[in-house]
Amino acid sequence: DWREIAKLAEEALKKQQPVTVNGQTFNDPNEIKKLLETAQKAI
């Protein structure tokens, strides 16, 4: 669910920690931002 992904990505950016989505881990803040943008577009 994109809403859940957006929430996870936002928290990861705030806490500056990696986030795992669908078994894929994102460590890079730039990648997390991209993930968040993608999720927000999909909602």
Rank of each mutant, 00 (worst) to 15 (best):
I43Y: 04
E11F: 03
D28G: 12
T38M: 15
T38A: 08
K33H: 09
F26W: 11
N30L: 14
A6W: 12
I5P: 01
P18E: 06
I5G: 00
K14R: 13
E37N: 06
Q40A: 07
A39I: 09
R3H: 15
P29N: 06
E31F: 09
Q24F: 13
K15F: 13
K7W: 13
E11A: 09
I43R: 03
E37Q: 05
V19Y: 04
V19H: 01
A12Q: 02
E11Y: 05
A9C: 11
A6K: 09
A39M: 05
L13V: 04
I32A: 01
Q16M: 13
I32P: 00
N27R: 15
N30A: 14
F26S: 01
K7D: 07
P29D: 04
P18T: 08
K41R: 12
T20R: 08
L36Y: 07
N27W: 15
E4M: 13
A42I: 14
L13R: 01
P18R: 06
G23P: 01
F26R: 01
Q40P: 02
V19D: 01
I32L: 07
K7L: 11
R3A: 12
K15W: 13
I5C: 03
T25D: 04
V19W: 02
K15N: 15
Q24W: 08
L8Q: 08
T38E: 14
T38F: 15
L13G: 02
Q40F: 05
I32E: 01
L36N: 01
Q16V: 08
N30K: 14
K14N: 13
K33Q: 14
K15G: 09
Q16P: 05
K33D: 03
A12P: 00
Q16I: 07
Q24G: 04
Q40H: 11
T20V: 12
E31H: 05
V21S: 02
T38C: 11
L8P: 00
D1V: 07
L36K: 02
A42E: 12
K33F: 09
A39N: 01
I43A: 06
E37G: 04
D1M: 14
D1Y: 15
N22E: 05
L13E: 01
R3E: 13
K34Y: 07
R3L: 13
V19M: 15
K34W: 09
D28K: 07
K34Q: 12
K41V: 10
E31W: 08
Q16D: 11
K41L: 14
R3I: 14
V21E: 00
P29M: 12
N30Q: 14
A9T: 05
P29H: 09
K14T: 12
T38V: 13
Q40E: 09
V19Q: 01
F26T: 04
L8F: 04
L13M: 07
L8W: 08
P18W: 06
P18S: 08
A9N: 00
A42L: 13
L35V: 05
E11N: 08
A42H: 15
D28H: 09
V21C: 04
N22I: 04
W2M: 04
E37F: 05
L35F: 03
E4K: 11
T38K: 12
N30S: 13
T25R: 06
N30E: 15
E31C: 06
V21D: 00
E10D: 08
Q40D: 04
K7Y: 13
P29F: 12
R3K: 14
W2L: 04
P18N: 06
Q24L: 13
E31I: 10
K7Q: 12
W2A: 04
D1I: 10
E31Y: 07
R3S: 13
G23Y: 03
N22C: 12
L36W: 12
T25A: 06
P29G: 05
P18H: 08
E11I: 08
A6S: 05
P18A: 13
N27V: 15
A6T: 06
Q16T: 06
K15S: 14
L36H: 03
T38L: 15
P29W: 09
W2D: 03
N22V: 04
T38D: 10
L35W: 04
E4N: 08
E11W: 07
A12G: 09
K15H: 14
F26H: 04
T20W: 07
F26Y: 14
Q40I: 15
I32Q: 02
V21G: 01
K34S: 11
A6M: 15
G23Q: 04
K15T: 13
K33N: 06
E11H: 07
L35Q: 01
E4A: 08
L35I: 09
L36D: 01
T38P: 02
E10N: 07
E31G: 04
N22Q: 08
D1A: 10
D28C: 09
T25M: 09
I5D: 00
E11P: 00
L35G: 00
W2N: 03
N22P: 02
A12N: 02
P29A: 10
E11K: 06
L13K: 01
K14A: 14
P18D: 06
E10S: 09
D28L: 04
A9G: 02
E31P: 00
T25P: 04
A9R: 00
G23L: 03
E11C: 11
E31V: 09
Q17P: 05
Q17I: 14
E37W: 06
L35R: 00
K41Q: 11
A42K: 09
V21P: 01
K41W: 05
N22F: 15
A42V: 11
T20N: 07
T20A: 06
E11M: 07
L8G: 03
V19N: 00
A9V: 10
K7E: 07
A6D: 01
I43C: 05
E10L: 15
A12H: 02
G23H: 05
Q17Y: 08
E4Y: 11
T38H: 12
N27C: 04
L36A: 03
I43D: 04
A39Y: 03
N27T: 09
L13N: 02
N27H: 11
R3M: 13
F26C: 03
T38Y: 09
K33P: 00
L8E: 05
V21A: 05
E4R: 09
I5S: 01
W2G: 02
I5F: 04
L13W: 03
V19C: 06
L35T: 01
D28F: 13
Q24T: 11
